[in-house]
Design a protein around this nucleic acid. Structure first.
Lengths: 311, 311
DNA sequence: CGATCTTACGGGATTCGTAAACATA
DNA sequence: TATGTTTACGAATCCCGTAAGATCG
């Protein structure tokens, strides 16, 4: 009588859904309507399921209906598992549809403070239910976080060719000179890097690529790199410059921030100090749908951005 | 690009099994072999699943393999739910195959003590992994337990036509007279019911169908039913008879038990006191596969059993 | 006799495997 | 270039819906 081969692999979710529908409504006809199936189709689905299992789940005649003890014990289990399936699958669908999800990203402070807000604003307008955790850390830490997977994507300067990292360039950021109001260099539209030697330089304290880049570039121009003052935060540097304690070099990204702190920015002649800014991600580790969408927005918003100094 | 209609109902267990296999083995080829599918078939299964969900679960090229974040988060869930399904389905299959299960049955004491053991022995020989709980209670309680579902099947006298109960007759049990050794009636091969009036009668104390049946039958034969002694247990009655304190009437089922207690049994002339013994179950409540099997064995073992008194 | 489930059967969609094309390290 | 995945396509299977049949109360 039984099909012979009992194999749980052959059992279909549809069959179990059919069983649960029948068990719930206690009627084939009603259940068939509920799951959008003709009565005979449902009948066969149940029969096939029973044959595969090797016994009856329901005892039905034209006028009476009952679950067998086996059906009775399977019913709540089936119901629970179907619910869990649906929950898992719907959740997955929602992630792909960007209706839920979570992004962890890292960005260097200059970007995080000055450009990220507008990108995140657009992103959250389009996908209000995706949570975003933004880590604003120095460029080196951005790289580290992406490399170790603590951040899915990161924004930093180009870390160069890396076996395990992928860099998507956004734009080139030129460094600008930060001056106090009334500084002798203020009248110039552009500042020659050679002119910097005369003034006290204020730089970032921590060892960083930015600091290295400045040091290297100055040395390439026969200037000594001997910072008069050092600080950790851009804000501090801006304030010190504004107070007339010296001049500084910062990414053009920070120019508005510097102005707000009371300093003045001037571009370097020939853009002699510049660095590629872009999005970092892990090679061979695909992005989540949400991060992918954010990446799109970042590219769309900032690709080929002009970062020239201006008042 | 996506299929358009996201519907968890369309997702197949087979597809999820395919995904889990690929995620586990990190290779389409190996996974295909594991689940007995050709590589292309598996490829399509994954693709269909991804299309239905609306996004990628795996990122694969010919040389690299990785789960997407969505796939990564779905993998353990899918694995767990598949395991739970298999467990539930295998358990169900085992019940139908009588490799596991549990029966609760009730039987009146005369049957439970005298005939049930051999039936259960056969049953457990055939199905050693099915647990059996036997309630030996008086016939009325058997009926009550079956009626309320506390026992799936019961063995008792025919309770008569009942709306909610089904009675499967096994055999007819004739009552026998129980005498002490050396009693004046001992020489007779059969005892006329009229002869009983001269002796003290020992009966069951509790109100029961058996007691009622005896009372009614005696009265129909113009005899008074006034038990000299009453007891609760058959054993007690047997002992009292053996001691010469009176005679008794018990189902022929108990005859061996009575003999062992030192009493003697004689049939009643014309089998004037008899009752149908059979299996009780609930109408409209199908039996479990296990109970069904036990019912088969009961019928096979005891149908049309001869219960005549003999030494 | 009426309501309800099951069987019969033809059409359509799905799924499979083989073979060829394709893509990446 | 070699390995592993995807596309192409014909064949087999499965699944569904309509219509007729069976069954129990």
């Amino acid at each position: 009588m039984p099909n012979g081969s009992f194999n749980p692999n052959n059992i279909t979710l549809k069959q179990v859904r059919a069983f649960v529908a029948v068990a719930r409504s206690r009627s084939f006809a009603e259940a068939a309507a509920q799951i959008h199936l003709s009565q005979p189709a449902l009948s066969i689905a149940i029969k096939t399921l029973e044959d595969t299992l090797g016994g009856k789940l329901l005892s039905r005649t034209t006028r009476t209906f009952a679950l067998t003890p086996e059906g009775e014990s399977f019913y709540p289990t089936a119901q629970r598992l179907l619910l869990e399936w649906d929950h898992a699958l719907v959740d997955l669908g929602n992630r792909f549809a960007l209706k839920t999800g979570r992004i962890t990203l890292a960005a260097m402070p200059s970007f995080a403070a000055n450009l990220m807000p507008q990108a995140l604003f657009r992103f959250r307008q389009q996908h209000p239910n995706i949570r975003v955790a933004l880590h604003d850390v120095i460029a080196e830490e951005v790289v580290r976080m992406v490399r170790t997977g603590r951040a899915e994507i990161g924004i930093s300067f180009d870390p160069g060719q890396q076996e395990d990292l992928l860099f998507t360039p956004l734009f080139e950021d030129a460094f600008v000179v930060v001056l106090p109001v009334g500084h002798p260099l203020e009248p110039k539209a552009e500042v020659d890097i050679q002119a910097l030697g005369e003034w006290d330089l204020i730089t970032l304290q921590a060892p960083s690529q930015v600091r290295e880049l400045i040091a290297t570039t100055l040395q390439q121009n026969q200037l000594r790199f001997s910072p008069a003052l050092e600080a950790h935060q851009l804000v501090t540097i801006g304030r010190m410059v504004a107070k007339g304690m010296g001049i500084s070099l910062v990414p053009a990204l920070c120019q508005q921030q510097m102005c707000e702190l009371g300093a003045i920015c001037r571009p370097l002649k020939n853009n002699v100090l510049r660095r590629q800014v872009g999005v970092l991600s892990r090679r061979r580790y695909p992005l989540s749908a949400a991060s992918d969408a954010l990446l799109d927005i970042l590219v769309e918003t900032f690709a080929d951005l002009e970062t020239q100094a201006s008042d």
